[in-house]
Amino acid sequence: MFIPVSVILIPTFNHYNRIFLYLIDSVWFSIVKVGSALEELLVVDSVWKRFGDKVVLKDVSLVVHSGEVVGLLGPNGAGKTTLLRIISGVLKPDQGTVSIKGFNPIDSRARKLIGFCPQEPGLIPDLTGFENMLFYARLQGLDGKSVVNRIKELSGIVSLTDDIDRLVRKYSGGMKKKLGLAITLIHDPEILILDEPTTGMDPGVRREVWRIIEEERKRGKGILIATHYMEEADALSDRVYIIDQGRIIASGSPEELKSKYGPTAVITIEFYRQPRDLGDVLRKTGLKYIVDGDIVRIHSSDPDRDVPRIVALIHGAGGTIRSLKVVKPTLEDVFLRLTGRRIE
């Protein structure tokens, strides 16, 4: 509404030029901001950390851009929590650097940019949910009426509005986790660092948390999630770093990792009526296959592309399919392939 008015007024009132230019500028900057979605928010560069004789982190490097969810996947004791503590400025690295938009994590300017949610929610049980949020808001340097509104807004987002004035002591585990997440968001940080955000949650609440994380991502936040849940990393992350025994052993998008390290997908087909020449049809697909009576198993590296093709070939040869099942590789398989162990 405002822009057209100012545009109309330019010829007559000269001083409106400035407002006009300001508006143009702000529009321009927001375009630039949206355009450069791959701003590097967090850069971890060859970080080492020892506790006594034990080397917990070995030459760990990672990057989190704005508007992406990065999963840090690894078994318990892989060094995930230590890495997150170093990023949050709770611990200092022995070697290497962490940069949060160019600031050292110990710098209070960096601390304002990050929201750290430790694995233990870090709540004060004798305060209400509201008071807990107010406490951490004040630690962020926020106070006054605007904070109260922000708390109300956030308690709505994590659906704790009805319980916000109850003592945290009486909260369930899932409610505590959600409140912890809301506290992490209180100062609207640009980087979210979440340590096992859904551990011990029932599936419904987990979905809810995933939805919140997804929304924050859409708002251009950079999010780093440490998890040992394969499906969580798979469902949420744009990119995944797989960490084992303090070392990053693989990275990339879940799809990339699966196609690079995972086994091929298996397409299992059962027939009502086999096509006229099954062997010929299967040879035409150009894929590895095994025939086991009425059941055929075909190995495919890209089942999304291959399934329609195979179905078309079978139909073309006059076959009728009773059932078709695709077993795709998971990140679990990737981890198994990389380390020779299961993650849990």
């Binding site: 503590r85 949050s88 400025g89 709770v90 209070s108 601390r111 304002k112 990050i114 750290f116 949610c117 430790p118 694995q119 233990e120 929610p121 870090g122 709540l123 004060i124 049980p125 951490y136 630690l139 962020q140 340097g141 506290i183």
Partner: peptide, 17 residues
């Protein structure tokens, strides 16, 4: 024990505060 120290240390609040 309850993990709030970690969270407090990650905020801009200093040990002196």
């Amino acid at each position: 024990e309850r993990g709030s120290l970690e969270r407090i240390l990650s905020t801009p609040a200093s040990e002196i505060d």
